[in-house]
Amino acid sequence: MVDWFQRHIPKIVLAPSFAAVLLFVYGFIGWTAWVSFTRSRLLPKYDIAGFIQYKRLFASPRWETALNNLFIFGFLFIVIAMILGLLIAILLDQKIRTEGVLRTIYLYPMALSMIVTGTAWKWIMNPGLGIEALVRGWGFESFSFDWVIDPKMAIYAVVIAGVWQASGFVMALFLAGLRSVDGEIIKAAQVDGIPTWRIYSAIIIPSMAPIFLSAFIVLAHLAIKSFDLVIALTGGGPGYATDLPATYMYTMAFSRGDIGQAASSAMIMMAVVFTIVVPYLYSELRAKHD
């Protein structure tokens, strides 16, 4: 008995965590998936009723807005954060003496809660007293910057705050990548008289493909999960103009009491994450075993 126990200690130690993950991750995903195929409203029902919730979901203009916003926000957020991050990383890579201080400044937003970020930018972009008033005060009387209250532009205000928060992190990823490129190759290229911008565009950046992928995965993941930022910055408004799938799901689950819609929208989010993350994780784990 004691011997058996001794031999199986590692498994026994791991078992509670593994059981928790099985139940609270996979079991719960299963529950949500099941409920998304029922007629559940205020209370969950367990009789399968086919795709009725998904039909309701895709017939809803609010969900359509949320999905559109996810694509607009996700695309701009990822592209701008990557370009900005890469640009700053390359500039910082030129043997700057104050690099440490600058890096600290670029990255600190990542330590903040998205609620704090949203609160700060909501104030900065306040039409009456923020940037708009500031620029008007400089004499540009017709200047207008009221994105946070303009249904057409509000989602771009969310992009600004999101990029501000995450681009420093992308910079850190790229900077680490730039530093890991083989110095000998760069030296050889410099000896051959190849201009710096060519060294970057033809040698260094192509060799950082895995880092681009990592940055993309992290940013895409942040974009899909974005919830706090929208809540704090616009509350999903004006109206539901800045709803994202995450806020749609929350509204359905906790203020509308529509469990069926909450479950089906959560499953769509899950599916989006799944298609992005699984191939990545698979290749990562694959690479490690080989």
Partner: peptide, 8 residues
Amino acid sequence: IPFQVVLL
């Protein structure tokens, strides 16, 4: 996972 999927 997006935690929305486990909230309910």
